[in-house]
Amino acid sequence: MKKEEEFMPKILAFLCNWCSYAGADLAGTSRLKYPPSILPIRVMCSSRVDPLFIIKAYLAGADGVLVAGCHPGDCHYDKGNYYTRRRFAMLKKIFEELGLESDRLLLSWVSASEGTKYAKVATEFTEKIKKSGDNSVKKEIFL
């Protein structure tokens, strides 16, 4: 019974087509175990993720938002992920300035061969969000 009551967060994951999505796929085909908390969205490049997507997800009540792409230097489009990193750093800063929970946002680099890393990132991030608890924004009315 106790297991059912446990809080299972909902984490939205923007995964780049060329690395991280393939990495997630590999984790699956390798039958690696990780929590069912991740809802993946495939994007062509991590730099396709407008900070607005992340804000929208957060306001809609996502307990966590993960952005994952190719390792720096390995971007399929040469340098997309460098822009991603700047935008992500900026967004985190804005969250901090406004006193919002920036810990609910995560940027990670996962290559196509890193199935294990993907499972690890998913597990660890889920554990972290579990500790933070429910994103209370999902109950807000006056958004």
């Binding site: 607005l52 804000i55 306001l59 009540g61 900026m90």
Partner: peptide, 23 residues
């Protein structure tokens, strides 16, 4: 999910969005 929602919505989204776009 929320039981109620301010309409038109997106007041906070608009302000946060503008901060990321022009900050």
């Amino acid at each position: 999910r929320r039981g109620g929602l301010r309409v038109p919505p997106d007041t906070i989204y608009y302000q946060l969005g503008r901060l990321t776009h022009i900050g």
